[in-house]
Write a protein that binds this DNA or RNA. Structure first.
Lengths: 343, 343
DNA sequence: CTGTTAGCGCATTCAA
DNA sequence: TTGAATGCGCTAACAG
């Protein structure tokens, strides 16, 4: 049971003071190259790694980033085991980015709807003292949270949020993506393309609807409100919306759904009505979680750059803490479209 | 920008000393109920939450658990986006269990095959000072890691490891599961059931093979080595094994694969050979990641209690740190079988 | 039962 | 360019 090696041991080994070692560790100025090398040698010889707890206590960075996800949605995704891989992609982008800078990302589940959101967030921050917070939808646009963060002087990034405001806004161009999805269908000759919206709680829902409308009117097609189904990202709401469409006399021949669950619902309903996909009705999905790849037929989908957005968030937060100024307050990442057999 | 509230403020508010507050926080003994209540009131009034960094510096717990996953496998799973939800299930079980005790779980990716595994693990531990470490396969049986942990006096749990040894071994009964999968096929009337093994690097691979053999001989069927295909958990190895089976004169009518990837490979090969599943050949898979549910036909699979194992690991580690003695060194969790259309 | 003292490992003042 | 002091928020060991 070796005792842990501290900065003191390194100082003794290198024959310098505590402070000099600290300077070398943090790449501080005013250290001769020779001394720097000597300290570095001692560090690697002893296998010294600074304790982040002590670093924080010393009044510096905590090397921790806190990622806040919605509790219910996240747990539900895990429990269903349907491979809703939002969290995986966040980890992929965020963790790897953090690792590069010696940071760690800690996950926390928070209930947006709870009356004590503030207490929950406050508690997590007080306990961890992170250097920054990464907000994901729907937290990204929850003023209870963003205002608290501002009050605490805690840097944060809002993923999936386009509106300028406090914190770093990082999103893909949802409007352009919806327009692209719609245009794709229009290009395939569809004239009546319907759209299933997401929950209003998410700012991106509005953006996607706007994109759809824009693409439709760009072709000079009428703006038919009957072609817009209100959903809330749940499978059930997708079923309802799709059944509404199929009950119409002049029913749509193509559907754009604001997320995968609703797209799968639309697919299910279509098949149950004896319709063939994509012959009778084409479907485009948003998000591209694994499930849509394994649907029959596999769904064409807008691919969200979740890993990229999280990586960007981590990078910005880390740089901000390092004192980097003039960082972009808004970051728009490119989306992709995965064409599969549903169109 | 409110200044953070510390134990001092609480002490002042309650009119007691620092130490008394600390006692109340940690549920220590020797505090009158009246004082306890007074302190509790001050805590909630001020919204005080102890800083885990400071708690650790004070020589107590760090309230952190470190989960080590294999870097390549994990990243590959995320990148492929196939919804290999091992990590999700770990988070589901581990995070929720941790949250109950005021703990956090931090993920770290480590390359088992690297020559500097020890350095990587050492560094993570030195930086974080976790109260315990959760090892997942293949780390669970990597002596480089386990021995290092023992030397450091760091409590740890080995998930997917049945052998007694240092640390808490937590696993499902892989042998019984493989036997159950095989028996299921035997019950369906199959006489020639083949088995695709996993990589020898994983202790559970041997256990699964044993279970298969046991089930076969329990029926008095011959122990035919030709029915055992060597795999390594990759899709490609599954293809090779399956093609070997199909080239046989007296080919098997049922397959048990040691993981989902290889089962999917077997399915693919079977279909390509014009065989019908399950009529011509039945398939049972291990792991039950989301993809097998969306295969056509959906595969019958052994369901691993990943969330349960991680939760158990967290619980044991937390209790151990709390001073709980006689905790079980081996924990076996029940598995389940999800019967679907492939059998 | 409660308060006082002395660190934990580090970074941030200051001096030299 | 370096070193010595001071304090971060907390707990353990000791007193009272």
């Amino acid at each position: 049971m070796r005792r842990p090696v501290t900065i003191k041991h390194v100082a003794a080994e290198a024959g310098v003071s505590l402070q000099t070692v600290s300077r070398v560790i943090n790449n501080g100025p005013n250290v001769r190259q020779e001394v720097r090398d000597r300290v570095a040698a001692a560090v690697s010889k002893l296998g010294y790694v600074p304790s982040i707890a002590a670093q924080r206590m010393g009044g510096s960075r905590s090397y921790l980033l806190l990622a806040l996800n919605d509790r219910d949605r996240t747990i539900e995704g895990w429990r269903s085991g349907e491979g809703a891989d939002w969290v995986d992609q966040m980890l992929l982008g965020g963790m790897l980015q953090c690792a590069e800078a010696g940071y760690r990302m800690i996950f926390e589940l928070v209930d947006t709807h709870s009356s004590h959101v503030e207490r929950e967030v406050q508690a997590a921050i007080s306990a961890l003292h992170p250097d920054g917070v990464i907000l994901t939808p729907p937290h990204s646009d929850n003023p209870m949270i963003t205002e608290l963060l501002v009050r605490m002087g805690m840097p944060f990034a809002r993923i999936g949020s386009m509106e300028a405001g406090e914190g770093f806004a990082i999103a893909m161009d949802d409007q352009a993506a919806a327009a692209a999805a719609t245009s794709l269908l229009l290009d395939h000759g569809h004239r009546r393309v319907a759209f299933i919206t997401g929950s209003d709680e998410y700012a991106l829902s509005g953006a996607r609807l706007d994109g759809y409308r824009q693409a439709v009117s760009a072709r000079g097609l009428p703006d038919d409100d009957a072609l817009i189904g209100r959903g809330d990202f749940t499978f059930a709401s997708g079923v309802t919306a799709m059944e509404g469409f199929l009950a119409m006399a002049d029913r749509p021949t193509a559907i754009v759904a604001s997320n995968d669950q609703m797209a799968l619902a639309a697919l299910r309903v279509a098949l149950r009505h004896g319709l063939k996909v994509p012959q009778d009705v084409a479907i485009v999905s948003f998000d591209d979680t694994p499930i849509v790849r394994f649907a029959s037929p596999p769904l064409t989908a807008i691919v969200q750059p979740i890993a990229g957005m999280t990586a960007a968030a981590a990078r910005l937060l880390i740089r901000a803490k390092a004192g980097d100024a003039d960082l972009p307050l808004q970051t728009i990442l490119p989306f992709a479209i995965a064409e599969r057999e549903s169109t």
